[in-house]
Write a protein that binds this DNA or RNA. Structure first.
Lengths: 203, 203
DNA sequence: CAAATTTACTGAACACTGTTCAGTAAATTT
DNA sequence: AAATTTACTGAACAGTGTTCAGTAAATTTG
């Protein structure tokens, strides 16, 4: 009897439908302004239904976050293809910053807001791991070739990530308004700052 | 007739009372869990009263943020006293990271949450400017002495700030869980990562 | 096929949020 | 003493995440 199999399938489809609606509203109106009721309206179900598929809003956010990390990994793979590990590191950095500036709502979900970190400890590690590995592998290759000023791969990874995240998140949260730089030149400044950093710590 | 003078004074005192209550609750329960009603309860006034002194919650947050930046500048002045500008830069960096880790709620308010950036554009620049100047001055001194690998002061300032902020904020938002490092060694890793970065970009 | 059971969904209700505003009582001025 | 201004209240509004009794449809059982 294929009923339970079909129901299984329908359950997954419904989760997907909810997730897609959530993502759509996140991109349209922002994560902060998207409520369970909005999402329910979007898919023409009642708010209560969403709780039959996701334990709470955090779990849903976590799933959308997982998709977002998939997208970041995708652009990493597309853009960071140089053979030379230092050049590849530059490509990764540029891609990260561009992704953050072009997808502020996804970036929020991935790296800034508190929400999806409230899911179960063990399940949590999954999200973002692939993206971090992509960076770590690149830095390991740099270290292998003796191209890092500080050859500790963990320290180097954290430095690159922190610098890129610092630049993107300070900008997304309008904290660079204290600096005297016009709105439109900021992306260029961020990129130049990141590149000059990479050049300083590699050889 | 000293009535209007007294009223002026009382108005300031009341604003101070509200601000102090807000700060207290922020530190006790977190910024996110502190509502206007909580603050009103704390000072034994009705919620509406708060709106007689602050236009909205953002304006109140902005004022508390201003206090928080004052505290950061204070610890900068206490701890970053070395004559050698590179050593002073290290002291500033360590102080910044320690402040962030020890005062997560204040750090949130200062650098992460969206809220207080919604105040009027012109008024906004004030907050944080002093702290940024403290860092910029130090890096200008480094540049003066030819101690920076990249002698552009704006780029250097942004790099140091972004790296420190990246480290602190990724940690406060639990994003370092993806790395295999135990909870208790993370502060040390952050500090070591920051110091090794400063050493790489100075000479 | 009819009855019993399971499943999927609803939407009102709860406790909360920031904010507004008519109403009131006290302080001040006339 | 009367009129006016000031400071404050607390209910109300529209929103939030979440729960749960009730219902109708799908499925299983006899």
């Amino acid at each position: 009897m294929g009923v339970s199999e079909r129901k299984e399938r329908e359950k997954i489809e419904m989760k997907e439908l909810i997730k897609a609606a959530a993502l759509k509203l996140f991109l349209e109106d922002g994560v902060a302004k998207t409520s369970i009721r909005n999402i329910a309206d979007e898919i023409e179900y009642s708010p209560g239904t969403i709780y039959l598929y996701y334990k709470d809003k955090d779990e849903l956010l976590y799933e959308v976050q997982s998709n977002a990390f998939g997208k970041l990994l995708e652009v990493f793979r597309e853009n960071a293809t140089h053979n030379d590990p230092v050049e590849r590191l530059l490509e990764i950095s540029r891609t990260y910053i561009t992704f953050g500036l072009n997808n502020p709502e996804l970036y929020d979900l991935m790296f800034i807001i508190r929400a999806p970190t409230n899911v179960d400890e063990e399940i949590h590690k999954a999200n973002g791991g692939n993206c971090l590995d992509f960076l770590t592998d690149c830095l390991a290759a740099c270290a292998e070739d003796g191209r890092l000023v500080v050859p500790n791969v963990q320290v180097a990874t954290l430095q690159v990530w922190a610098t890129a995240h610092g630049l993107v998140s300070l900008n997304l949260r309008c904290r660079l308004k204290v600096m005297d730089a016009s709105e439109e030149e900021i992306p260029n400044i961020l990129m130049a700052t990141m590149e000059s950093y990479i050049r300083s710590v590699t050889k």
